[in-house]
């Protein structure tokens, strides 16, 4: 018996679980997406209807609007977390006094669930204005900036999902900060010393020496935030409800489709979500694998 056999047997239960709960479910979902299934019952006889579900979805302005919302949400989420994350990392990377406290504050929202965070943000982003306003709208009035009041994610504007990204940015900027902070600390002090000796300004040191070395960190951050945005369900469900048009994304639409027993349609929607995520994540995993191979891991 080759020595690797017991190792394989040790992993086998997990291989089976992963095989069933990830890959078998993906295939099963794909098959459902080609049917007219309208109930979750196993006994139901379904008919295969080809790409009909996909066609209907793509011709449904509700659905394309949901993808637009997801795009706006993702871009705002990415830009926001990167911006705050990098600024905080730059402010903290030279270990000013009290660094631990600030780091702890910036990171704590990560420990809170989206559902709990949404309770506070529902109040903060309440759409009421004028005398009935609470939350940020009232704060704007209190500090004399009434003109900034708006309906946040409840508004029927093209970019209302930027407001939906705010709680998500609040929760995950600290994470991006931590990634970049670790990145900065991984660069040896000698490189900065040498640049300073040559008379480089701090700005140029960041621009030409530090940031270029952090591009792998930025890539990781991009993939993590990007895929979290694609998974985003809890926050939108909690803030806007499951049946919101203005704030709907494909994942919340999926819940609504299931609630109205459109299983085939929901499965087609699910497949499209999966494909979009895979387009970004699979090359990333392959790239990571190659890097590891080069390092001989």
């Amino acid at each position: 018996m080759p020595t690797w056999v017991p190792g394989f047997l040790l992993v086998l239960p997990s291989i089976i679980l992963m095989g069933v709960f990830i890959y078998y479910l993906i295939v099963r979902n794909l098959l459902t997406s080609f049917t007219n299934r309208n109930s979750n019952s196993r006994l139901l006889k379904v008919r295969y209807i080809g790409f009909d579900n996909y066609e209907r979805l793509l011709n449904d302005s509700n659905y394309t609007h949901a993808w637009w919302n997801l795009l706006v949400l993702t871009v705002a989420f990415l830009v926001g977390t990167m911006l705050f994350g990098i600024i905080w990392a730059v402010l903290l990377e030279k270990a000013p006094k009290g660094e631990g406290l600030f780091r702890g504050i910036y990171l704590f929202p990560m420990a809170v669930s989206f559902i709990a965070a949404a309770v506070a943000w529902k109040w903060l982003l309440s759409p009421a204005m004028g005398p009935n306003a609470v939350g940020l709208n009232q704060l704007f009035q209190n500090i004399g900036l009434s003109g900034l009041q708006n309906e946040w994610f409840s508004s029927n504007s093209k970019f209302n999902m930027v407001a939906m990204a705010m709680p998500a940015i609040w929760q995950l900027s600290g994470y991006i900060m931590a990634l970049f902070l670790a990145g900065f600390r991984g660069i040896s002090e000698d490189q900065r010393e040498a640049a300073r000796m040559d008379g480089a300004s701090e700005f140029r040191i960041y621009r030409y020496i530090l940031f270029p070395q952090l591009s792998p960190v930025a890539l990781s951050a991009l993939i993590i935030i990007g895929h979290m945005s694609m998974k985003m369900f809890d926050l939108i469900y909690a803030l806007a409800g499951a049946n919101s048009y203005v704030a709907g994304v494909p994942a919340t639409l999926l819940w609504a489709q299931l609630s109205s027993y459109q299983y085939g349609r929901a499965a087609a929607n699910a497949t499209m979500i999966l494909v979009v995520v895979a387009i970004f994540v699979v090359p990333y995993l392959i790239y990571t694998r190659r890097v590891e191979k080069k390092q001989g891991i």
Partner: peptide, 10 residues
Amino acid sequence: FLPYPAIMIP
């Protein structure tokens, strides 16, 4: 990285 909503039905 699996988007869990994508496998909820099965």
